[in-house]
Design a protein around this nucleic acid. Sequence first.
DNA 1: TATTGTTGTTACTTAAAAAGTTACACGAAA
DNA 2: TTTCGTGTAACTTTTTAAGTAACAACAATA
Lengths: 146, 146
Amino acid sequence: MRVSTRFSDSIHILAFIEIYQEKKLSSELIANSIETSPVVVRRLMSTLRGAGLIATKKGTAEPKLAKESKQITLLDVYLAVEKDRQLFTLDTNTNPECIVGGNIQKVLGAYYEDAKMAALRKFNNVSLQDIIESILVEQKIKQAKE
Amino acid sequence: MRVSTRFSDSIHILAFIEIYQEKKLSSELIANSIETSPVVVRRLMSTLRGAGLIATKKGTAEPKLAKESKQITLLDVYLAVEKDRQLFTLDTNTNPECIVGGNIQKVLGAYYEDAKMAALRKFNNVSLQDIIESILVEQKIKQAKE
DNA sequence: TATTGTTGTTACTTAAAAAGTTACACGAAA
DNA sequence: TTTCGTGTAACTTTTTAAGTAACAACAATA
């Protein structure tokens, strides 16, 4: 399948909103930074709004974060747009009559959950504020090189 | 896109080979346990062979593990079939002219790597032997319930 | 208040990745 | 020498998400 960039693009949107909060922020302008279409941006923003991460007004190009950037973690964003889906995919169609096929899903599922939890815990320790600060630092590094 | 079950299916194949090592193990028989086609099994086995995890003989249905099951970790299997690809997907097409678009890939990439590493480290601590033992225990639990 | 711009949403199309399928040359073993 | 199986290539189908088009509802303002 096509690989989902929802998580990355959502963080992009949130960082963009916060960094350019004084400006008029249409979905088209944001789409320009992500290099995608305005509808894709609005679709993601709709999800982020549903998860209580941003606040928007219909007809008005003024999206705001619904919480402080320090209070939004990468995990919040991940769960908003990817839900709690499997990170490593079990084959859920194995032969239940077979010793291996009949038990591997439960066994592997437990180890997969364990690995997923380890990854998501990392995301729970990174805030949107961290991302924004890092972006601004990288930008200064770039400029210092010129 | 369709979600890859290569990792799960590969572990399935390896466990199957080890558990039924005395028997004649055609790709068709293994495919029956996974509920897939023999070609899919042979394709995966070809990759596992390339990674030095199994040994096969063309024309003969006698695949063997190339190492002891204790010496094969889930990480070995993962890297064999999924390579070292991104676990969380960066959007690699962002606007370099924009402060966010121009720096977010580097910033997010680092956090993604960190989370991925946490997950893969878990897999490095689980052996095929662990999986097989767990499968056999689950099977006994099942049978005790009957 | 008519116009212009924007959001929010639906429906549809396209793209990409992996599984599934077909086919077949080649090897093994009886 | 026949039968079974592997290894592999080429092609088709399935799945999922991005991209696109369209439009009603809302906001601001000329």
